[in-house]
Design a protein around this nucleic acid. Structure first.
Length: 484
RNA sequence: UCCUUCUUAGCUCAGCUGGUCAGAGCACAUGACUGUUAAUCAUGGGGUCCUUGGUUCAAGCCCAAGAGAAGGAGCCA
């Protein structure tokens, strides 16, 4: 008999039909004559209740239906006599496809700590919270493709292995087939990468942006969406060594167009989640409310998860130039009372996360777009603003800051002038030879263009309300941790 | 990488000033119960107190080193 997914079963409500459901046991309970099994197959957050009449079917058939076991159940979908659910399956046949020895199976029908679940990442998707996160992760990925596709953007597959070491976004993972114990050396006693697989030193990509610009300078609007890798030894709830990034790159976009697109994009995908994953979000909303109620009053965010998402969808993000932001910080009571750890606020400094958090969480209480940053603290490829006083040069960069997350998006208008870009590269003593093709884009048919990068996991964190980035990716990669 | 904290039963944790301190709840097993919703009730099994070394008459508790984890910082997305 053909299997019906639980999501479909609950939606159709076709009572008095015979169905076959298959899934994993959440809990089993019951008395002498009847057993109740909560079965879940991942298709929805909701379980289906299986009712087993032990007198007619015998106790043996559910003896091994412990938490975690996989079952195939044939039965009749009926209106439930109980109050916890509207329909249930009155079983006529229960087959245990895969047992789960309760003495050894680590998952239990109770709340586990997120740490424990990370250590059991192979069973983690069987929990309510994590399967909900995974459904939303899928939904958001789909929404991202839909948003860009509907706008006429092309999905460009930037390389995972890169020979370019000039992206400057962070420490890189070396990719090599050379013998780690005994690598070939050149005259200078350095590793001779000319003998390596690619004939040169290669790494895992830290960003697809530079390749994205190649796409934009021919296809107009493109986006990349793939894994990126940073070998930074950062141990925080907001960083991963392997994470997914979305990087659109658009020809003929100025910084303002870039900011507009970024806001529209975030609002679109969040609206998509609200419209298509209401049940999952409701569960996360309640979960977060429970968590919040245990916090001290001053640490509470004051808004529920769904409320927060609606707010972001319905309101324009606050736009603020870096220079204005410095003024706001300087004039804040927080600063005057010396409450910032780095309280010496002056133009030209890189904003610390406490400053960003103050702006987003205390001053404006909404997403904030900061733009026009000092040239000296930003990347080489960003376009410089014109007519500025000496020592106060800025570039057309923008960051979008989110409450609880920090930087969600970093982007800029790119320098399209060959001469200006060449000068910056020379001044910064960057390796010209690996950037020849990047410079060629300016030499031949250059155009104003812009783009940004969005950390997919940080978006998922915001939408799900999860507080640790390791809990929004199936297989987190962090320093000292690559199990599974 | 730095700072702080943590590591006791399968899980979540308690364990006071170093001296009946090997404990609870849940889970699990067995039994009871005619429809349960984290079912309930009774009984039971279950421990390298992270590791190593030290102090002490005596260490789960104090000290040192190591391992792992969490939170914060830096870096960033």
């Amino acid at each position: 008999m053909k299997r019906t997914k639980i999501a479909h079963l609950l939606q159709s409500g076709a009572v008095n039909t015979t169905v076959n459901v298959r899934g994993w046991v959440r809990t089993k309970r019951g008395s002498k004559g009847v057993a109740f099994i909560q079965l879940n197959d991942g298709s929805t957050i909701h379980d289906i209740q299986i009712v087993v009449n032990l007198e007619t079917l015998g106790e043996e058939c559910v003896k091994n239906a412990h938490t975690g076991a996989c079952l195939s159940v044939i039965g009749t979908l009926i209106a439930s006599q109980g109050s916890g659910q509207s329909v249930e399956v009155q079983a006529t046949e229960v087959v245990v496809l895969g047992e789960a020895n309760p003495e050894e199976y680590p998952m239990q029908p109770k709340a586990h700590s997120m740490e424990f679940l990370r250590e059991n990442a192979h069973f983690r998707p069987r929990t309510k919270t994590f399967s909900t996160v995974l459904r939303l992760r899928h939904g958001l990925a789909f929404a991202i493709h839909k948003f860009f596709h509907d706008k006429g953007f092309y999905y460009l597959h930037s390389p995972i292995i890169t020979g370019s070491d000039a992206e400057g976004a962070g420490e890189m993972f070396r990719v090599t087939t050379l013998d780690a114990k005994n690598p070939p050396l050149n005259e200078n006693k350095e590793v001779d990468f000319s003998q390596d697989f690619f004939g040169k030193a290669t790494n895992l990509t830290v960003s697809g942006q530079l390749e994205g610009e190649i796409g934009a300078m021919a296809m107009g609007d493109i986006y990349t969406f793939g894994p990126t890798f940073r070998a930074e030894n950062s141990n925080t709830a907001r960083h991963l060594a392997e994470f997914w990034m979305i990087e659109p790159e658009m020809a003929f976009y100025e910084l303002e167009d870039n900011m507009e697109l970024a806001q529209e994009f975030i609002q679109y995908v969040i609206r998509f989640a609200l419209e298509n994953y209401a049940d999952d979000l409701k569960f996360l909303d309640e979960r977060l409310a429970k968590e919040e109620s245990q916090k001290k009053a001053e640490e509470r965010s004051g808004m529920g998860l769904i409320e927060k998402l609606r707010f972001v969808v319905d309101n324009d993000f606050k736009r603020l130039s870096y220079t204005e932001a410095i003024e706001v910080l300087k004039n804040s009571n927080h600063h005057k009372k010396g409450k910032f750890q780095y309280n010496d606020i002056k133009w030209g400094m890189d904003l610390q996360s406490e400053h960003e958090r103050y702006l987003v969480e205390k001053e404006y209480k909404q997403p904030v777009i900061l733009f026009n940053y000092p040239k000296n603290i930003k990347s080489f490829y960003m376009k410089q603003n014109v007519n500025e006083e000496v020592g106060k040069e800025t570039v057309r960069a923008m960051d979008i800051l989110f409450p609880g997350i920090g930087e969600m998006i970093g982007g800029s208008q790119r320098e399209e002038s060959y001469e200006k870009l060449l000068k910056v590269i020379t001044d910064k003593q960057m390796p010209m030879e690996s950037l020849w093709w990047y410079l060629d884009l300016r030499k031949f048919g250059t155009a104003p263009h812009s783009g940004f990068g969005l950390g997919f996991e940080r978006l998922i964190m915001f939408v799900t309300g999860m507080s640790n980035i390791r809990d929004v990716i199936p297989f987190p990669r962090t320093p000292k941790s690559a199990e599974f």
